[in-house]
Every structure is written in C-alpha cells, then in structure tokens.
C-alpha cells in the first residue's frame, strides 16, 4: 500500500506491507537513528515524534500514518547537538544507543511543559530506558539544557 509520510518536513512516499510498523519503514528509508530495543512498546528506544508527540514507532502501523508529520532526531539536529553537549559534560553518555529517542523525548517535553521540576522531568522520561548510564547524570544534563538560552 502506498503511504505518504512527511518525515522531518520532507514528503516521503513509500510502498509498505499493511502490517509494517513505522520503525521498519523509517529504517528502510535510511533514518538509522531510529532503533529497536524491546519491540514491545516498553523500552522507549524507538521513540519518534508523530505530529510533535513522542510515540513508540515499533508499535505504530505505517498505513495509519498517511500525511502525518514524523520527526526523527535528524529533524531536530541543532537541539539534539545542544543536549548532547550537556550530556557530554555530565558524563551521561556511554554507548549512545538511547540518545536519539532521549533527545526527541526531551525536545517534546520542552515544548509541552513550562519550566518542569525535576519530578516532572523524571515522570516525563519514564519508559526511556538507558542500559549504560545512571539516570542522575542525565537528569542534571537535561536541567542544564532546559536553562540553556544559547
């Protein structure tokens, strides 16, 4: 079935099987920042934004997304780089597998919540599992990123 997606502002038409999930479609389209972990909507590593909202791409059927706006980390490169700098300063990065989904979730949170408290940040990030780092360094980095006006 032919589906027309808008990925990072660019129209992308692709022929997909009716049971194909967005994660596989995006990877076929070479958005390799979108990753697979649990494949059962539990780990958060496949998160992309659909119409600005974080969603698990492993569990969304592509055929249902005709004409919808999909954002991967490539689409928020500047903000992701800023966040990565703060992650680097806090030593909150290790293998980096979780970084793209984390960056997209933090980006969406920044748009959705005004001056979130640490508790609100933690609540928003539930389900974004990082297999290497302790979460505390990430939270500190995110707080710095939210204050960063540059």
């Amino acid at each position: 079935m032919l589906v027309n997606l808008i990925v990072n502002g660019q129209p992308r038409s692709i022929e997909v099987a009716k049971g194909e999930f967005l994660l596989d479609t995006l990877r076929h389209l070479d958005y390799l920042s979108v990753r697979r972990g649990c494949d059962s909507s539990s780990c958060g590593v496949c998160t992309v934004l659909v119409n600005g909202k974080p969603t698990p791409s492993c569990s969304l059927l592509t055929v249902r997304l005709d004409q919808q706006e999909i954002t991967t980390v490539e689409g928020i490169a500047k903000e992701a780089e800023k966040l990565a700098t703060h992650f680097g300063h806090e030593g909150a990065d290790q293998c980096g597998y979780c970084n793209p989904s984390m960056a997209l979730t933090v980006y969406a949170m920044k748009k959705e919540l005004k001056k979130p408290t640490l508790e609100q940040i933690k609540a928003y990030l539930v389900g974004n599992l990082c297999r290497c780092t302790g979460y505390q360094a990430q939270h500190i980095a995110i707080l710095h990123y939210l204050e960063d006006q540059s």
């Binding site: 909507s41 909202k53 969304l60 539930v126 389900g127």
Partner: peptide, 11 residues
Amino acid sequence: EKIMGVSIRNV
C-alpha cells in the same frame, strides 16, 4: 499517570 511512559499513553 503510572501507566508506562508518555509515549505509550500518547497512543
């Protein structure tokens, strides 16, 4: 609030 993360609850 305590059902998984925001991304699942968005769907």
